[in-house]
């Protein structure tokens, strides 16, 4: 049996290849937050039950706390820090602010990532589709009504 040591991997994070050395047991969420300092990705339940840790893996939203970082070797990850284009916010981000789709904000990065991913694959969702896309997200402050309004407004704006 091989002795567990650190493994070198390369993950493209927010468009930049990042070379990382990590233990196999490190989750993607942990390496983003602690290895790369991208603390916008949040860990709340640490079990995939709240989706606060959502990032994009090759463009699809996933729970980064439920994935080993080593499994992302060679793949592309987008985090909340990589969503805006420079100073220009993503339409979902703008709409979240305008519609007050956030309160304490801890679930917000995950909500934003899943909402933006929805608009990538379905530019004109109805409220039901928005709710389906966000079914895995918990918000303890209760922002859901404003989140639905914000995503629908962002879809309007994008088109």
């Amino acid at each position: 049996m091989a002795t567990p040591t650190k493994t070198a991997i390369t993950v493209t994070v927010n468009g930049r290849p990042r070379h990382l050395e990590l233990e196999a047991r490190t989750t993607l969420a942990e390496v983003l937050r602690d290895g790369l300092g991208l603390t916008g990705t949040k860990i709340a339940c640490d079990r995939g039950a709240c989706a606060a840790c959502t990032v994009w893996l090759n463009g699809r939203p996933v729970c980064s706390c439920m994935m080993l970082a080593i499994d992302a070797d060679g793949q592309a990850v987008t985090t909340i820090e990589g969503l805006a284009q420079g100073e220009a916010l993503h339409p979902v981000q703008e709409a979240f602010i305008e519609h007050d789709a956030l309160q304490c904000g801890f679930c917000t990065p995950g909500m934003v990532m899943s909402s933006a991913a929805l608009l990538e694959r379905d530019p004109h969702p109805d409220a039901g589709a928005v709710r389906d896309a966000l079914a895995g997200h918990y918000c303890r402050c209760g922002t859901y009504p404003h989140v639905v309004a914000a995503v629908l407004a962002a879809a309007e704006r994008k088109s």
Binding site: T39, I80, E81, L89, Q93, I97, L102, G105, T108
Partner: peptide, 12 residues
């Protein structure tokens, strides 16, 4: 709209 909204939606 809340003034710290931008930093919350960008993860900052």
């Amino acid at each position: 709209p809340r003034l710290n909204g931008r930093s919350k939606v960008t993860g900052a």
